[in-house]
Design a protein around this nucleic acid. Structure first.
Lengths: 127, 127
DNA sequence: GACTTGCATCGATGGATGTCGATATGGCGA
DNA sequence: TCGCCATATCGACATCCATCGATGCAAGTC
């Protein structure tokens, strides 16, 4: 293993070693847990997905309250959680507030979860 | 209990379209939220990482109670949560119970979170 | 069979979380 | 300035969750 030249990630590659390679430290675990917690609610997952799927990659809150069966304050609360977790950004433009996803944050989590390979080792003997 | 008949993807392929491509359905969101909720605790994240990092890809509970400052019942509880989320498997061998991660589950979440690219368009930089 | 060890389950508890209605704030138009 | 619309915040409430000690259960060991 020559340790020269740190790898440069070509467009969307992961930034961090997968958590299956080496044990997470307490600090990293705490920070990552906070991000995953933001993803641990069905409404927030759908919100995130909906925002990212919108044309232009952003949506105003007025577009987000319709598809859900929860109240407007609840949507606002969930958006705040997503924002404070660093998963989305927001900006006010005149009357409306727009939200967009932050790809780097999602890709960080994605890279972290990536498991090397379907591991052919033992223990595949069912349960 | 014949749980896993999950298809095995050739090294890192994802099974599902990223959630940033099209809005998640209610049902998918509910299932995925349950998996992310299992990842939303620092102890569980470290447990998962620790199990995967062990030689052979599996660890017995006796190896997992030491590195944490929580009680043995709490570790057992967290392992149950991870198992019921489909993220790890377990098996009793004599006196000890062994746990291992299920790569397909992690890769599913990984593929789902993957964002296409750091999006260059964006008239809105900052914040 | 009695004792020991490894792990799971139980019941309790304090704190976190999702949800709501009411209300505040900020911006726009008349 | 007044009123309306779009969002955020507040306070309250019910539920969920992480954690613990006590206890139960399974598998070795003597």
């Amino acid at each position: 293993m020559s340790k020269q030249a740190l790898p440069v990630f070509p467009a969307g590659e992961q930034c961090c070693a997968p958590m299956v390679r080496e044990p997470l430290g307490e600090q990293d675990a705490g920070e990552l847990a906070r991000m995953f917690k933001a993803l641990s609610d069905p409404v927030r997952l759908r919100l995130l997905s909906l925002i990212a799927s919108f044309e232009g990659g952003e949506a105003c809150v007025c577009d987000l309250t319709g598809p859900f069966e929860v109240s407007q304050p609840t949507i606002s609360h969930h958006l705040k959680v997503l924002r404070e977790a660093g998963l989305v950004g927001s900006e006010r433009r005149g009357t409306w507030v727009y939200y967009w996803v932050i790809p780097a944050a999602l890709n960080r989590l994605s890279g972290l979860l990536h498991a090397p390979t379907p591991v052919p080792a033992a223990a595949n003997s069912g349960t």
